[in-house]
Design a protein around this nucleic acid. Structure first.
Lengths: 253, 253
DNA sequence: ACCGCCCGTTGCATCATACGCAACGGGTTG
DNA sequence: CAACCCGTTGCGTATGATGCAACGGGCGGT
């Protein structure tokens, strides 16, 4: 493991959170200012951070460009973009797309509802979701081959975030059976008490579930029942996206 | 300057472009495989790269998350998102938002036209634009205070990309006078012969032009004259966004 | 089935780089 | 005007980054 690289990563993260002075950078790393300065100078020349007029460091456009390069090359995200925007427009709810990526399930797109301007959802593109305490996580888990599901869950330390969390393997397994039976999943405040969500599976050309689409509401805006009223649209959207990926949707669900 | 950090940056960039094996990583850096491995292991633990099942390294979701954090905290981009989507829907053209950031003008949002699925535009969020050979670049330059414009242009080596490029300071200055007179700018294939663009200035609460919005077409889809037919909508959108930023739009243009 | 080759990986000794220190100039505040 | 703090740079040194050798595993050819 490289200590210098870890320090650089730490500074990039902090510069993304809020503007960072040299003195602060040295303090948080626990190194001399000259050491922090050289790391920042290297990151600045790479456009991973930018020096502001006030002398502080913020995230640079080089990171944004790399991110857009990666997101732009994701076929799933490209195919899903228009159907998800349509779903958001028709239902009024915030819409997410999450994908299994290695050992994590990551949000790769999000179409915000204007109704949420005042209350920000915690979800963010690039961020991993809880695989057992989110609708998209449970959806993808439900359809994974048993060995792969076991492997993902072997790293998990179950935590009861709220009273409705499936906080052990048995209750989660029962929930996954339900999800497979009905073809969709619900998050009834399992990670955050005020956030409700429904999700539907997205399949690739071989029929494997590799992603999920979801609609999210918070309790002051819409109840779970109101969210479920739009479930048929969500399911149609997920099937449409699956079709774009080459899944033969005539086989039935 | 930190050599290890520069190597890490290089690997992150390459992993974003295409999957990278350890052997390739060592070769492109000119170091031993054990050295490259340790850098990659550090980046992987930070989620800046991800190891695929095939053993290659690709860009990690940690970078995507940082990028979204930065983009999500840009007020201009938040205020502009809905008006730009409306503009794209009404006109059918691809729409961009570019902002002066330090010494560069960077695309910070882009709403694609479905018509472009087959032909990809070179523009990308996070990427710097040519400040003298793009409509958004010329728009922002036109309204900068002279000292700041001179400072930005002092770093520029003019290059004639196409027959229509303003490839020297005199012809650029004349063009900037025209832009200030008419209140908008045109790119008639100045950077890429097949790309046309019109742009309008966006002002902050103090009336300074800090960004520009644009509509883009390529010659097989729409001519520059067809693009100009939507100019009133573009100007209205730019004024609307300026208003959201606190600019008093009743002062006249 | 076996062998050779290449890949990724790790422990360890070595050396080159990252590090901290001292000194500096500049800006801000009292 | 003085004191303080910031950012910065040159340089000697200590340490962390480095390469090497050895290893196990997978793959392809015979």
């Amino acid at each position: 493991m490289s200590q210098s690289v870890r320090r650089a990563v730490d500074l990039i993260r902090r510069a993304a959170e809020h503007p960072l002075s040299l003195t602060e950078a040295a303090e948080v790393l626990g190194v001399h200012k000259s050491t922090a300065l050289r790391i920042l100078q290297t990151l600045e020349s790479a456009r991973f951070v930018r020096r502001t007029g006030a002398g502080t460091y913020v995230l640079g456009s080089g990171i944004i460009e790399l991110s857009e390069l990666a997101l732009g090359s994701m076929d799933l995200r490209q195919f899903a973009a228009a159907p998800l925007r349509t779903l958001q427009r028709k239902t009024g709810h915030t819409v997410h797309l999450a994908q299994l990526t290695g050992d994590e399930i990551i949000y790769i797109d999000k179409v915000d509802s204007p109704a949420f301007d005042a209350v920000k959802l915690p979800s963010r593109i690039g961020r991993a979701v809880s695989i057992y305490a989110s609708a998209v996580g449970k959806t993808i888990l439900a359809y994974l081959p048993t060995a792969e599901r076991d492997r993902l869950l072997s790293h998990v330390v179950f935590e009861r975030f709220t009273p409705t969390t499936c906080a052990d393997r048995e209750s989660l397994d029962a929930e996954l059976v339900r999800i497979r039976e009905q073809g969709w999943a619900v998050d009834n405040g399992e990670h955050d008490t005020y956030v409700m969500c429904v999700a539907a599976p997205i399949r690739d050309s071989r029929g494997r579930v590799i992603a999920a689409a979801s609609m999210t509401a918070i309790e002051v805006i819409a109840s779970l029942d109101q969210l479920k009223e739009s479930l048929p649209l969500l399911l149609d959207t997920a099937i449409q996206i699956s079709g774009e990926l080459g899944y033969d949707t005539s086989e039935g669900d």
